[in-house]
Structures are given as C-alpha cells and as structure tokens.
Amino acid sequence: MKRFLGLIVFLALLAGALYLLWPQIRNAQRYSALLSAPTPAEDSLPSPLPGQNLTDTWGAARSQGRRHEGIDIFAKRNTPIHATTRGIVLNVGPNGLGGRTVMVLGPGGQRHYYAHLEKYPELERGEWIEAGTVVGYVGNSGNAKNTPPHLHYGIYAGGGAINPYGLLEKNPAAP
C-alpha cells in the first residue's frame, strides 16, 4: 500500500511538472519546426497590406550612403498590417530607423521586419502568431516621419537582407 501511494504521488508530481512546463515545451517544438521549415518560395507570401499595389523599392539610395533593405508599401494611416508567415514574435518596440517595429521569426529562421508603424496590437515577445495576424498599423514613425504613411517590410536571413518583393504575391486581394 505504501508503495502504491508513493507511485500515485510520483505520478501526480510528474503530471504537475508537465502541466507547468507544457508552454515551454510547445514553444520549443514550434521554434524547432520553424527553423527546419522551408523558406518561402517566389510569389508564395501573402501581401502584408492586402489590396495595396506593390513596388520593388529594394536597393534604392537612402541617407548616409545606405541602400534600402526592404520594400515600402504605401497605404492610409492605421491600415492593418498582416503577418506574411506564421512564427514567433521576436520583438515589439521602437528602434532608431524603423520607429515602431515588429520582428517575427518565420520559416527557415528568416526574420520578417515590419517598420514605421503607427501603433501596435496586443502582441508580446515570444508569442506564436499565424499568417494573417495583425502585427501593426501603417504609420510613418522613425526616420519616415517626413514621408507619407507606409509599411517598410524586410526579410533577413543569416546572410543578411533579402529582397521580399519576389516572394510576395503580386495580385493582392483586399480582405
């Protein structure tokens, strides 16, 4: 009988530990799946601003001798911006050039960068999101304060910035 009670206590403790650790276990599984997933193919990502025309602004000259590492998609202020992939939110917060930004870790370990936002939705670092989740609203924060409202969308991999234009569907439909 004593042995049976010890087994019950052990199983109860094990179940409690698994219950408490499950969110971390689930996040580790998702992180692993993202890193091993294939990177997006040409014309496979939905537009972060459905219904807006896309223009390839990659490589355009910028201040201080920089080159544009992304594309700008112009839209009305506060237009919802949708995640192009599923992933884990790496950062929600301001930086010098991008102003209000969101960074999402997506398939293949690529980082999807949304910048110049007007405001953020309720997102937290480490949160899992699906493609289509609203990650921000169009604005002109950061070094875009003197430009019309737009989204700067960039993709980064281990080797640096990738032109997102070729990966985005070119005939976006409004939601």
Rank of each mutant, 00 (worst) to 15 (best):
A174I: 07
Q64F: 12
K76R: 08
G51N: 04
G158P: 03
P38C: 01
G160F: 09
G108K: 03
S63D: 15
L5S: 14
V92W: 01
L34A: 05
W22S: 11
T147R: 14
F4I: 00
G108D: 00
S32F: 11
D72V: 13
I129N: 05
H112C: 13
L18F: 04
P107R: 01
E118W: 07
P23S: 09
A157R: 12
N95W: 08
T57A: 10
L97P: 09
A33L: 06
I81E: 10
L14M: 01
S36Q: 09
R111Y: 07
L97A: 14
R67D: 07
L123A: 14
A115Y: 09
A161C: 06
D72G: 14
E69C: 13
P40D: 12
G6C: 12
Y19V: 00
Y120I: 01
M103D: 09
P149T: 04
P175H: 04
G142C: 11
G160Q: 06
L18G: 06
V138Y: 00
T85I: 14
A61H: 14
V134M: 09
H152G: 10
I71L: 14
K76G: 08
P175D: 04
A61N: 15
A75Y: 03
I155F: 13
L18W: 02
Q110V: 05
E69L: 13
Q110K: 11
L49I: 08
G98M: 02
I71R: 09
Q110E: 14
R30N: 13
A161Y: 07
N91Q: 14
G159E: 15
G99T: 05
L20Y: 14
